[in-house]
């Protein structure tokens, strides 16, 4: 550590601090302020107090908001089970004495480097009810009865979106779990073998307990990410989150409210900001906890 003239400190820190303050911190504060106003984006802002929040929570937008919120929570639960469960299992398979691990890992990660919205369009075609590959395969193996309008049936659409999401992200969780498993001291596993433990017992009583911190970190991240869902719904169902809003999430609701799109009942920056504030209030305690955890781990 050194004492230097203040001007060097300013020279080094000013550009980043200015950009960060103007385009990250200030917009957040401004969102809170806007949420108390009605403002279509032009003209004067009208102060309306807590009316936007009442409209969203109990008023005319209540049903739409709760519907979207429910989908986010459902998404978080399903994706956590599928991505963490399958991710852990495949990671265990990929840390055994098999060959070709690197190739498997690389391919598993591949969907993660493709833009989410492009993944959505690719699956939009795979799932096309008339000629999409999924239904074609089902028909050709004699399971034509299972060929469904995956994205057009309100009872299937959201689960289909969740599965596409798993397809895109699973590789990430596989790799994170692999990194966590190979950090386990080999002695522990060797000792378990000497004690006569089976592979299943080693996974259950050695590997799993030692990867619990990874599960915890990933759960926190999944919670935050689950409230950010937007692209995949946009690509598969559009901003209207059809059919009949059965795939609506807070991200698409927020987009419709702030930036319009056909069929939105009211386009208003104030109302949009209020939705953003509500999402923020749900996510921020968790993300602050996450920032605290990684900062604490770093210091250890």
């Amino acid at each position: 550590m050194q004492k230097v003239k203040i001007r060097y400190m300013l020279l080094f820190s000013t550009p980043a601090i200015l950009l960060y303050t103007i385009f990250v911190i200030y917009p957040f504060i401004y969102s809170f302020i806007l949420s108390f106003y009605n403002w279509p984006g032009v003209g004067p802002k009208i102060f309306v107090g807590l009316k936007n929040f009442r409209d969203i929570l109990t008023g005319p937008f209540g049903a739409e908001f709760r519907n979207a919120l429910f989908h986010n929570i459902y998404f978080f639960i399903m994706v956590s089970i599928l991505e963490l469960g399958l991710g852990f299992l495949i990671a265990v398979l990929l840390t055994t004495n098999i060959k070709g691990k690197r190739l498997f890992q690389t391919l598993a990660y591949l969907p993660n480097v493709i833009s989410m919205v492009l993944v959505g369009f690719i699956w939009n075609m795979m799932l096309n009810p008339q000629w999409g590959l999924i239904n074609q395969i089902l028909k050709s193996v004699g399971l034509g009865a299972l060929a469904k309008p995956w994205l057009g049936d309100p009872s299937l659409a959201f689960n289909t979106i969740i599965l596409v999401n798993v397809w895109r992200h699973l590789g990430f969780y596989v790799l994170v779990f692999i990194a966590s498993i190979i950090n386990i001291p080999p002695d522990l596993i060797d000792a378990a073998y000497i004690d006569g433990a089976s592979n299943f017992q080693i996974v259950r009583y050695v590997i799993f307990p030692l990867t619990v911190p990874t599960f915890q970190t990933l759960l926190i991240l999944l919670f935050i990410w689950s409230f950010n869902v937007f692209d995949i719904v946009y690509a598969l169902e559009g901003v209207q989150a059809g059919p009949f809003r059965s795939t609506d999430v807070l991200g698409t609701l927020f987009y419709r409210t702030a930036f319009g799109g056909l069929g939105s009942s009211r386009m208003d920056f104030g109302l949009g900001a209020a939705i953003a504030v509500l999402i923020f209030v749900m996510v921020i305690p968790v993300s602050m906890f996450y920032a605290y955890v990684i900062e604490k781990r770093r210091r250890k």
Binding site: Y26, S31, L34, I224, G251, F254, F269, A276, F280, I284
Partner: peptide, 9 residues
């Protein structure tokens, strides 16, 4: 801070 939430400002 999820930047997308501040998209309006």
């Amino acid at each position: 801070l999820p930047a997308r939430l501040a998209i309006i400002p």
